[in-house]
Simulated assay, not measured.
Amino acid sequence: MSLRLSPAHLDEILALQLTVAWAGEAAGEPPRLGWWRSDLVDPEAGGDLFARLLPKTAAWASLALVREAARRVDEAAREKLARGDAVSSLFHLGFAVDEQLADRLAQHRHQRRPPAEVLGPRFLVGRPWSSAAFASMLAALGKPKVQVTPAGRRLDVTAASPVEAAALLAAALVPLSTSYPLPFLEAVA
């Protein structure tokens, strides 16, 4: 896989990561998936705090934090694998890609454009919550062959690029479950 991604490709991955991170929050109203205990994005909760603390970058700050909450849950789940650092997951696509994603997120934060304006149609944050709409968006990404293991959902595919890997990993979240199912690929980018 190529390790240098275009800004458009980084935005495609970020849209998936940020949407999944938002959908995985527990404390929203209406309640979402509850994979991590946070409510950092919604305007009635963490979003309100960030709007008062960081009025110019509130949306990006809350998204960066919910992404970090999701990344930590993903990391804890990967630690249960025999070789957790040697797999790819939606929030762990390899050091080079993960660094580019962090840099791109920081760039968006400094540019201050609204997230929905730059991240495209897969970015569902801010829309009314619907688990059916979320699952439908994920299902439209493809139907990877998945083997359910005690540690997570192992994808039996090879991704040609980090963008394809992210889409397949997100698609493997379907069917939605009550706990984070850790979709993963054996090879790291």
Rank of each mutant, 00 (worst) to 15 (best):
L119A: 00
S131W: 12
L40K: 13
G126P: 03
S38C: 05
P121N: 12
M137Q: 14
D98S: 05
A82Y: 05
D103E: 15
R32K: 15
V118Q: 00
G46Y: 03
A45L: 12
G47I: 00
W129C: 05
V148A: 14
E68P: 01
L54T: 07
A76E: 15
L65H: 13
S136C: 07
S62R: 12
D85N: 11
A140N: 10
L54H: 14
G142A: 04
W60C: 10
L93I: 14
S38D: 09
V66H: 05
R113P: 00
V73S: 01
L49N: 12
L63S: 12
A76P: 01
A59I: 03
Q100N: 02
R37G: 09
W36L: 08
V97H: 00
R104N: 04
F123K: 07
L124R: 05
L81W: 01
A45Y: 09
R127F: 10
R52A: 12
D85T: 06
A133I: 02
D98L: 14
A140H: 07
P115Q: 02
S130N: 00
F91P: 00
A45I: 03
F91H: 05
P43H: 01
G94L: 10
T149F: 03
R113E: 09
R52G: 01
E99C: 15
Q147S: 04
D39E: 14
A82V: 10
S38F: 00
S130H: 01
A116E: 13
S89F: 00
F50L: 07
S130L: 04
A82C: 04
R52Q: 10
G126M: 02
G126S: 04
R122C: 13
F91Q: 10
P30S: 12
K145G: 06
A86V: 03
V146Y: 12
A77R: 15
T57M: 14
A133S: 14
E79S: 12
R127M: 13
V148G: 06
P31C: 04
F50M: 11
A116T: 02
G46A: 02
A86N: 12
A86W: 06
L90T: 02
S88Y: 00
L49R: 08
